[in-house]
């Protein structure tokens, strides 16, 4: 059912700098949380990097959740999705710190720690990605509309 008085051209796309600003703001907030955890964790390669692990698993669960939840929200502000996903989840989680921590643990001769930390991070990351996805789908089936 089309409105004959409606403009024929589609709504203008969101300006690119609006999306970039949303990514920057979300990235700043996610990074503050991760950097706080990193400072509490310290840089000793002989200890378990729990700060990085917590940031990575929480951010992965949230990304799985929001990826599903934001798909069916009508009239969503087009800046909201990049703010939450690319910004907050991307800023909160880190791949490079994980790799460097593993390299430093191996350099330090702590092979068991590196193997355990790597395995827990990868298995935990895949499980939390699936868990966030499934929790959001279950929530959607139950009919609640809040994100």
């Amino acid at each position: 059912m089309t409105d004959p008085d409606a403009p024929t051209s589609p709504a203008p796309a969101t300006p690119r700098h609006h999306v970039l600003a949303a990514v920057a703001l979300g990235g700043a907030l996610g990074t503050l949380a991760r950097a706080g955890l990193a400072e509490a964790q310290g840089h000793d390669p002989s200890t378990w990097p729990w700060g990085t692990l917590v940031a990575n698993l929480v951010g992965t669960f949230l990304l799985g959740w929001w990826t599903v939840r934001l798909t069916h929200v009508p009239d969503l502000d087009p800046r909201f999705r990049p703010f939450l996903t690319t910004g907050i989840c991307g800023g909160l989680t880190t791949f490079s710190t994980l790799q460097l921590e593993l390299v430093r643990q191996v350099d330090d001769g702590r092979w068991a720690l590196a193997a355990g930390y790597g395995a827990v991070t990868l298995v935990g990351g895949l499980l939390t990605a699936v868990a966030g996805h499934r929790a959001a789908r279950a929530r959607r089936r139950s009919g609640t509309s809040a994100t």
Binding site: G27, G30, T31, R34, A35, A38, N56, G59, T60, L62, L63, G64, T67, T85, T86, C89, G90, G91, L92, T93, T94, F95, S96, T97, L98, G125, L126, T128, A129, V130, H133
Partner: peptide, 18 residues
């Protein structure tokens, strides 16, 4: 921690794999 850590991402990687 801030710049390079935020440039990389673990969450998108995990979502892509799963």
């Amino acid at each position: 921690t801030a710049f390079v850590g935020a440039y990389s991402t673990f969450s998108t990687w995990m979502l892509d794999v799963s």
